[in-house]
Amino acid sequence: MFEPLTSSFSPPAIAILLLDAENLQLNAKMEKFLTTVSSYPLQVKIAFANWSKMGKRDEELHQRGYELIHVPVGKDNADGKMIALGSSVHERYANAKEVIVCSSDKVMTNLCNHLQQNGLMVYQVSKKGEVLIVLNSSTGKQITQFPKATPEIPTIEIFIQQIKQLIKAEQEQNQIIWVQLSTLSKVFKTKYNLTIAQVVSQHLPGKKVREIFINHPADFAIHQVDATSELYITLFQVNQSLALNSKENISLSSANKSPLLASINSAADLEKALKAILQELTIQSPASYIDISPLGVEFSQRYGKRINEQIKSLKLTGNFIKFLQSCKSFNLKQNGKSWQVALR
């Protein structure tokens, strides 16, 4: 005779929402947002109110799947019923793991504490104006809100100071002079929860990010080999005393600079000038590759002419990359969207 099989099945974990409908209006968009707060599916929704004075609110909530609990007319009756019923949800729903308590009334703190003591994760939801605020009940700290707060866009003056501080920090930390715009954008986003593009869009509608640096030449210097290469930014007054121990350091002390050529009249002259600069840039590791932009920047600083302008004036074909590829002194390789160069 076979023993009957016993089922070991346990229902899936769920989240429960308790709503003091007299205290807090929760529209469909807000409710949808709350489903993203909990880790478990929101399966049970219970609303408390004296429905006779709520117009068609009961009909709307009923259509959205709420269980409606009616209370007599009177102050705090909905609170009392919600606390009484809410205190037993862990017994009524053994598979409940989270409870979302929706009420701006501070008296609900006792309910939240009781639910936590029974092993439930509790989120306390209140409303300020049209903003829904969600707190972690165990810590009392805000974890999110709806709609999401948009960061305040700083004034141009404040933004310039913020960027200057970040550039200085990158220069000191990495022993470099020029900072890539992509790097600057990342650290700005991390620190201020805002993108440089958002600031530019606010103050210079329709303009590219680089425009904000071009418009402040007293604060910043920029360099870009061509339209597709990385943009480099530095402060207009560069601290030349930074240590020269990085292969990315593209500003050299005058003591280490080779003599300038009297003139550049040919491709050979240009190759010679660039080779001398690259030797200095990679003096501590001659075989190492560096981005081509620092090489172009240093050439421009020494000879007073952008590298592509120099190439054009010599009536050479192609751009900076093409010229370097044509030279016997250099090896080139592509790294993502950027090009790197080393001495051959």
Results as ranks from 00 to 15, higher is better:
F2L: 12
I16W: 00
K32W: 14
V37K: 09
S39N: 07
Y40M: 05
F48K: 03
W51C: 02
S52E: 15
K56Q: 13
L61T: 04
G65F: 07
H70P: 03
K75I: 09
A78T: 00
M82G: 01
V89E: 01
Y93H: 06
A94D: 06
A96V: 15
K97Y: 07
S104A: 09
N113W: 13
H114Q: 14
L115P: 00
L120S: 01
Q124N: 12
K128M: 13
V131D: 13
S137F: 02
Q145D: 01
K148L: 10
A149V: 12
I153A: 09
F159L: 08
Q162R: 15
K164P: 07
E172F: 08
W178D: 04
Q198C: 01
V199E: 08
S201V: 04
H203T: 08
L204I: 12
L204N: 11
P205T: 06
F213M: 06
I222E: 05
Q224Y: 02
D226Q: 08
D226K: 04
T228D: 12
E230H: 06
I233S: 03
N239Y: 03
N239D: 15
S241R: 14
L242C: 05
L244K: 02
S251T: 08
L252T: 11
S253T: 15
P259K: 10
L260M: 12
L261R: 05
I277G: 12
L278M: 08
E280Q: 15
Q284E: 12
S285K: 14
I292W: 07
G304T: 02
I311N: 01
K312M: 13
S313K: 10
L314C: 02
K315H: 13
T317K: 06
T317C: 07
K328I: 08
N331S: 15
G336L: 13
Q340L: 10
